[in-house]
Every structure is written in structure tokens, then in C-alpha cells.
Design a protein around this nucleic acid. Sequence first.
DNA 1: TAATCAATTAAAACATTGGTTAAATATATA
DNA 2: TATATATTTAACCAATGTTTTAATTGATTA
Lengths: 106, 106
Amino acid sequence: MTADRIFEALASQPRRKILAYLSAQELTAGEIASRFDMSAPAISRHLSVLETAGLVNSERRGQYVVYRINKDNLVNTLTSFTFEICPVAGPLKRESRKRAAMKQST
Amino acid sequence: MTADRIFEALASQPRRKILAYLSAQELTAGEIASRFDMSAPAISRHLSVLETAGLVNSERRGQYVVYRINKDNLVNTLTSFTFEICPVAGPLKRESRKRAAMKQST
DNA sequence: TAATCAATTAAAACATTGGTTAAATATATA
DNA sequence: TATATATTTAACCAATGTTTTAATTGATTA
């Protein structure tokens, strides 16, 4: 199941922090690593967890590997889980469906 | 940080399953345990993780301990995280604020 | 009170996660 | 080609999480 990997990926402060950084701009692996007090290999593994979960994408650009967030996947998973647990939120749910329908506009 | 505990609590299939069960109705610890192929103590631990994270509440009722979900906490945490990472979703964000304002109506 | 049922806590075994350093791979450049 | 930089993979260790069985606590009832 994919929700498994996503929740597991989110269950880590450094990984959530990486997502927050990437939500503002795309960054190379090295740029990300430089923002943490942690070795590059450790960051590389966190990035691979995030990528396996489908929360980020990577692209090699020369020597560098650029990472970029996959917002749709994150939003869709969390909102669909939220509404599975809490189907009460009517208007919010409607908006969520609308958003999912025009996913590509992000 | 409380988001830490919440994401850690959600990073477990059995715990998410427990939340799903509790989203439909309140259940005793034993009723929950009977739905899993797992010992009662194991379930008890999962319940305590969920309760520490503030995702469920418990109340002793005679011999039994009844568990009930705390939907607001879950929804608020996940939506606020979602919008921290993805502030693009304008209308959804507005609805979320509205919902937070009338929290008690759940 | 004694016996029973429900639930949690304790202790131990086992698996998983998260970090390190060292080695390997990929690209750029002198 | 040789060297340097960026990143990932491999091997390893420490810490944490998950489960089990056994013991303990709380509440009901015969």
C-alpha cells in the first residue's frame, strides 16, 4: 500500500523539514544537506525514502541531483486519509474533490 | 513538539486501522483487540501511543475502558501540516480556517 | 471474600530505523 | 587521462519500536 510508505516517510522530523524546504524551491542534494547537521549519506537516504513514497522527484542536472516536491501526492494522500477518518467535514470534502479534479493546475 | 508524536503515531498500519475503526464508533480495548490478530497487550500499547498523541481519548466504564477518537486533533494537525507544505490550495485553506473557527460543532 | 473478567505494565526477544565512515559511481574539468 | 566535486551505496553500530508471555491492577459478582 502506498499510504504506508507515505506515512512512514512523514514520521521523521528531518524528512518533514526537507519537505518544508522543498515546498519553497527546488534544491540539490548538497544544498539540502548543508542545512542539516548531518552527513550527506544520511540526507541521501532520507531523500530516497521521500522519493520512494512519491513525495519528491529528482532529476540529475550535470554533477548535481535536483530535488523537487510532489505537492499533489502529499495533499491528496493526507486529505483522503483525513476524510476517511473524519467524513464529517462536508464543505472541506467538496473542495478537496474539486481540487483533485483539476490536479494538473498546481 | 506535538506534530512529532502525531506523525509517529500515524506511522503504523495497525494504529491507522484502529483510528478507522474508532471513526465509526467508540469501542472497548477488548473489542478493538478482537479485530486484530495480535495480543491484547500489543493493542494496549498502540492505544497508549494514540492517546499520548492526543488522537484518541479513553474512559473507564466499569470493567471496560472505552476508546473514542479525537477527530479535531487529527484533522487540525494534518490540514495545518498540509498547508504549511502546500499553501497553494486557496479555497481549501479558507474552508479549513472556517472549520477551525467552529471547531466545537463536530 | 474468593473467583473471574478486562486491561495494563513488566521483562525479554526480535526487527527496524537512523546515524556514522568508507568505498563506489557519475559528471565536470585541467 | 587524471583529478576534483557531487551523490549514492555498503557495511556497521546504537537506539528505538513491536511483539510475546507472565505478572499486576481494577472492577464485578457468586
